[in-house]
């Protein structure tokens, strides 16, 4: 897999834009740390989404223009943010009632590994000297109606991140609905990974070779032209 040209595939921004296209108007959405945060930049015009950050804000806006934001107005990644008109603050128990109680429509998360049955690993590599830290990820995958993952298709060393079964400790079992990578959009179905969309200029073999499990073809021909 070292033959992969470095300029192949969608950028982080492309991936975020692609996810944003699929979020319906009026959705309540939790965005995870990292690439998922970029999704907020690419919401198509005419749609209004309400962003939830689990530390206690619904109606989260972008980072403030200047660097002198309120240190007590932050997101789950502890970055300064703003509150949009219509926002609300609440305590942790209410915040996770929104999450666990099924009130949020969508959560977009990063991943270390996604298995073909929807298992997600994204909090620990399980290395003995690592400091384990989980935050709200396990609650999010247990309670939010739909879980989208946005991730590079392979690790920096070329190992597949979409696998038959996760080798890292799980965040949740059978929780992922859809995966957006730099190479493709892939649904998790009862039969396994099913291709939804290929990055133009990349063929199925190229993606299959970088995927650790069988990729089922798109049911009808909806491949990008």
């Amino acid at each position: 897999m070292s033959d992969a040209p470095s300029n192949v595939g969608w950028t982080r921004e492309d991936m975020a834009r692609r996810v944003a296209q699929d979020i319906p108007d009026g959705s309540y959405v939790n965005l995870g740390i990292g690439i998922p945060e970029l999704v907020a930049r690419f919401v198509p015009q005419g749609r209004e989404l309400v962003y939830h950050t689990e530390n206690g804000l619904l109606g989260m806006g972008p980072s403030p223009e200047s660097d002198d934001g309120d240190p007590e107005l932050i997101n789950a990644g502890k970055r300064h943010v703003t509150a949009n008109p219509g926002a609300s603050f609440f305590h942790q128990s209410d915040s996770f009632a929104m999450i666990r109680g099924g009130h949020l429509d969508l959560c977009v998360l990063g991943a270390l590994q996604v298995a073909q049955n929807g298992d997600l690993a994204n909090w620990s590599t399980g290395e003995p000297d690592a400091i384990p830290a989980v935050g709200g990820a396990m609650d999010l995958v247990a309670g939010v109606k739909a879980i989208y993952v946005i991730t590079q298709h392979t690790t920096k060393t070329g190992e597949p991140k979409l696998v038959e079964s996760c080798t890292y400790p799980l965040t949740g079992a059978r929780v992922v609905n859809r995966v957006y990578t730099d190479l493709a959009v892939i649904d998790v179905t009862p039969e396994g990974f099913r291709l939804v969309e290929l990055n133009p200029g990349i063929d199925l073999d190229f993606v299959q070779n970088r995927t650790g499990a069988q990729l089922l073809p798109t049911p009808e021909s909806t491949l990008s032209t």
């Binding site: 942790q92 128990s93 666990r100 400091i131 384990p132 989980v134 709200g136 990820a137 396990m138 609650d139």
Partner: peptide, 19 residues
Amino acid sequence: RSGRTALELVPQGTLAERI
């Protein structure tokens, strides 16, 4: 790492609800 402080790791929402 030196074993001087023990850690009970709890998912954030579970921590909130336990409290």
